[in-house]
């Protein structure tokens, strides 16, 4: 599955795709996008690197086990949900304040952090499953 054209192109595509994934996740609250889509996009990018460059390069791109992403994502979503309890609100209550940065009012909902947690879990699950199952068919 490794062609030199793909391999060369991936060097350019991969960072751009990851950037796009984060962009999709960040703008999700008011425009098409969201953590789930972002996670899937990032997972596709990782899978493509895995297919074009093989396991060893993959290991240097992502030098940790995907389950760390899952654990981290779940923790992030969980903490986002629990924090409102400390202020006496129900679980997962969200606020959508505007943060003023460089003269711009930026819409930063607290649900964003929840969404980033979703992103991490989706990347971890999709990439992890494909790597594990794909380990069987690796061309040496």
């Amino acid at each position: 599955m490794s062609s030199s054209i793909l391999r060369t192109a991936m060097g350019l595509i991969f960072p751009l795709t990851l950037l796009f994934a984060v962009y999709m996740a960040l703008k999700g609250h008011n425009q098409p996008g969201g953590g789930f889509i972002g996670g899937l996009i990032a997972a596709v990018a990782l899978v493509m690197v895995r297919m074009s460059h093989g396991r060893d390069v993959m290991a240097s791109v992502m030098p940790f086990h995907p389950r760390l992403l899952i654990a981290g994502g779940l923790a992030m979503a969980g903490v986002t949900g629990v924090v409102p309890l400390l202020f006496g609100h129900p679980l997962l209550t969200s606020r959508a304040p505007y943060v003023h940065l460089l003269g711009e009012a930026i819409h930063v909902p607290t649900a964003l952090f929840f969404d980033l947690g979703v992103l991490m879990v989706v990347v971890g699950v999709a990439a992890g499953m494909i790597f594990r199952l794909g380990g069987e068919v690796d061309p040496a």
Binding site: L92, S94, V118, V122
Partner: peptide, 28 residues
């Protein structure tokens, strides 16, 4: 409400966020 205009996303992460929390747990 959730204060967002992307209804699908606000459903997922805000006012039905508890469902999503359960779903990502199941995924894990």
């Amino acid at each position: 409400g959730g204060g967002g205009t992307n209804v699908v996303n606000v459903i997922l992460v805000d006012f039905r966020g508890f469902d999503t929390l359960g779903e990502i747990t199941v995924l894990g």
